[in-house]
Design a binder for these strands. Structure first.
Lengths: 112, 112
DNA sequence: AATGTATACATAATTTTCTAATGCATCAAA
DNA sequence: TTTGATGCATTAGAAAATTATGTATACATT
């Protein structure tokens, strides 16, 4: 996994996409889900995750719901209406980016 | 083009790939080529390009050859042997990244 | 009883990597 | 003659990450 840095800039999109698929998730769950989905290729650190979640919340894209599980604290995040729209935008941008990059690094096998 | 930030972290790979395809190029040429290949979606700024080129050179991946065209100065960059190997590595990492990301944001239409 | 690992939140210092702004200089065309 | 393109480069600042650290609960192993 030497390519962690390629994921730079895509964290918000990844979080939003997961919340679109899973309705509501809490921070730790997100890190585990990403690790699982990427077969360990992407490991989201707390220092990246929590500031990102807080920013998305501050921007009105996520709502928080605190839950107590046993004696443990969990903060469930879910998309707001505005968050759903923004998710669609970001996913479209991501597709565009992936297509462009594919074309750049491997013109012969472009997706288009 | 709201997705410039997604390209964060991929500049080195892009430069190396271009030099693999084009033998030798100079800075300004690279910016124009990228703009052309991405249909304007990615615009490499000088503040990103030159430090990147200088770093690749310092790392021994690129050789420089200064040329005078008219009264103008040009610095042609080309891959060293070590640079060619690193290009292969970076391109493989990029493919892996693209596949992973495609799978993450659009599991149904994975590349694999 | 102690130790390690997993769960769960969070922040702070630092680094990486970019954008935006600026600077210098050549050259062609209007 | 001045505007836009070509060509190099640096600097200030912002964004987004990594690394390190901190707090605390829960569970399994030694």
């Amino acid at each position: 996994m030497g390519n962690q840095k390629l994921f730079k800039g895509s964290l918000q999109t990844i979080i939003l996409k997961l919340l679109e698929s899973n309705d509501k998730m809490y921070g730790y769950e997100i890190t585990q889900k990403v690790k699982e989905l990427t077969k360990g290729e992407l490991k989201i650190t707390e220092g990246a995750l929590y500031p990102a979640l807080h920013k998305l919340e501050a921007d009105g894209l996520l709502d928080v719901e605190v839950a107590k599980v046993g004696n443990r604290l969990r903060k469930y995040y879910k998309l707001t209406e505005s968050g759903s729209k923004e998710t669609a935008n970001k996913l479209a941008e991501m597709q565009e980016f992936l297509k462009t990059m594919q074309h750049l690094v491997n013109p012969k096998f472009s997706l288009e």
